Simulated assay, not measured.
Amino acid sequence: MTDPMTMAIATAMAGKAVEVAGEPAREAVAAMVRKVREKFRGRTTEEAVLEGVIAHPDSPERLSELHEAIRRAIAEDAAFGTALESLWNQVRSDSTATEDGVVNNFSGQAGKVVQMRDVHGGLTIG
């Protein structure tokens, strides 16, 4: 299964441009790439995968290998995964709103969450 976060990281690490709306999102993607590089440092297999995708950035197979290596690293280290997810949320919050849009992000646990925009008239929440 391909997920947008790890694929965006893999694509950025392959030297491809990742389309994001604003500077904060670009900075967050760059921070994600740095975190993955740090995680892979000294890990022979992962470093070889990274070198392979850098040498062959247009190879879907190499990109897929890197994507899977990132997913394995996340599965092995929950704190690493949480850090990447936090940065990914920054990317999403900066890059999803349009000119007249609103971005609502919720993270954590709650019994009830309400997110809305442009309520005209009465509103009762019970």
Rank of each mutant, 00 (worst) to 15 (best):
L50C: 04
I125A: 13
A25F: 03
A97T: 12
A8P: 01
S59P: 04
V29L: 09
G122Q: 14
G121S: 10
E61Y: 12
V36L: 08
K35T: 08
V119P: 03
A69E: 14
H56A: 02
K112G: 06
V103K: 11
A10G: 00
A97V: 07
G111L: 12
A83D: 14
V53D: 13
D94M: 01
Q115R: 13
A75Y: 11
K16A: 04
S86W: 02
E51Y: 13
A31N: 10
E99R: 10
R62P: 01
K39T: 14
V113H: 07
M7R: 05
D3E: 11
D94V: 01
A30T: 02
T124W: 11
A73R: 11
T96M: 00
V91R: 01
I74L: 09
T2R: 13
R72M: 03
G81C: 02
I125T: 10
T98W: 04
A8H: 02
A48F: 15
E19G: 09
V102W: 06
D3P: 07
R92G: 06
E19R: 12
S107A: 04
G108R: 13
G15P: 06
R62N: 07
F40W: 13
E27I: 14
V102Y: 06
K16Y: 02
V49D: 10
S93V: 01
L66F: 07
G126P: 07
R62A: 03
S95C: 06
E61Q: 13
A17G: 11
